[in-house]
Design a protein around this nucleic acid. Sequence first.
DNA 1: CCGGGTACCT
DNA 2: AGGTACC
Length: 578
Amino acid sequence: MTKHFPVSLKQQQRQKDLDRSISSHPFQRSGSQTLPQTMDDEELVAAQELPQQQPHHPRVIIHIDMDYYYAQVEEVLDPSLKDKPVGIKQRFHVVTSNYVAREFGIKKMTLITEARKLCPELVLVDGEDISKYKQMSARINEIMHKFSGNVEKLGLDENYLDVTKEISEQLEQGVEGGLLERVEGYVYPPLEGGCSQREAFRRACGCGCDRRLILGSHMAKEIRDCIARELGLKCCAGVAHNKLLAKLVGSVNKQNKQTVLLPNCGSSFLASLGSVKALTGIGEKTAEILEEVGVKTVRDLQETSVEKLAKRLGLEQAGRLKEIAFGKDDAPVKATGKPKSVGLEDSCPAISIRADAEDKFRHLIVRLVKNIAEDGRIPIAIKVTIRKHDSVRRTSHRECKQDKIMPSFFRHKDGKLVLADGAQDKILAIVMKLFERMVDLQQPFNITLLGLSFFKFQERRMGTKSIANFLIKKSDIEVQSITNLSNESITLSDSFTSNKSSLSMSTAMDCDSASLASLSGSESDAEPSPKKCRRLATFLARKSGLLSANEDDSSSPSKLRVADLRLNSKEYDQEPCK
DNA sequence: CCGGGTACCT
DNA sequence: AGGTACC
């Protein structure tokens, strides 16, 4: 998949030279300098293959990060908190604190007892219920969507925006001259005098990103101002030509500030961060593995050969890490859609009898259905997660099992999803069945966490009967498999719009029909359903515009059903999936 | 080191 | 399908 990760030693050396010249005197390298000024950090490799290719930094990415999010929301809700030290409490920890509290040394994950010692007058707000923060997050999101259609959510308080299109539209329509001369907010690395900010950007890279990024800084400011005006919330922004750099550069200047990265400074900037753990995409485990091969800092990573890394990490990941270390990141901003799964987990001291588990699960089902009520979509699969007591391993060694659930378990009541009569027990029965597949009730057991999640959602459709309900009522195994297939296919055709090729689409469909066939044909199977699934897949593929209408086969016994489907599936076409 | 979510690997 | 890593 990845095109070119190898970075030769020679290239690395050039890289370092380039970096040094930038970090020591960013803007004194005109005239006598031989370094190609339009040459980008991460594009040295590509540029060698495609000499003089234009788009070095084609995108403008803004990363917005809310300041001390939970605590700030509490301040907005109760302004009297503003000048007091505030901590948000979840279980035994302060999960966020405002800056007043941070003065006392109270940071993320400080134990409550610890925090009280550090600051007796600390105002602790219960943050177990995160619905307030979710709601505010949704408002923030609305605002961002005024500026770009391409907004990717990372948790409740962070968002990426790809504003490339918006910026180029601005440039086409022509912007007020003064706007381009001055950056909004901070620049990394800090510019020393000698030339205008505009000139500094132009010298750093000639691909045209100078104007784009400067305009990007103005747009970031507008977004932040809008959020402050409408919601009273402060945030930071990072502006750069990719996600990795935008996110990281945004935290260079904290507390209601923003920073734009000077093009060409990616790898020196990343090196300045020190530990590899600072890099997005490198977490605890990866950092551990890297340390085993003597790689602790970003600089180490930049200087270590892919070959050496690949021995422990595999070529794929090694290549990716190398690129990341130099600030190369092609990852697109992916507009966040509706969630693909919604779940709940409760950790508990110990559950060792079936009835207790059953009680917990019943409770979880009720809460979970409330959580998806607004959404309105019907889940057709459920997953049960447990954690067995284990004194050795600290975190997550969870087990899970999943199964289908019937759409008829749900119905809509004034626009919201609710459980149908008796459905709670039916779901509970499925849950307990899955639970017993993981836990042997004969043996003593000790469960420390129970979780449930719904996934594979059907889009809510008008009319009283959805396709699935209609088909499932026939409760015929073959039809059921069709129902399933249609769900799968719809998911796939949705994702097709973003980045799937039609080839992988049809491959995925083949897989689906095969696996479904094996599922439904488990008992007596006189009639091999694969063919039918295939046919339906073809139909759905055509509907999604992947196949031409000529390849029709109307001689099927399931013609009627397909026709029904076609009728019902009109609603799918309303979806903006083209 | 809570907890809900996603993505990727096998 | 299940596990692991990450945010």
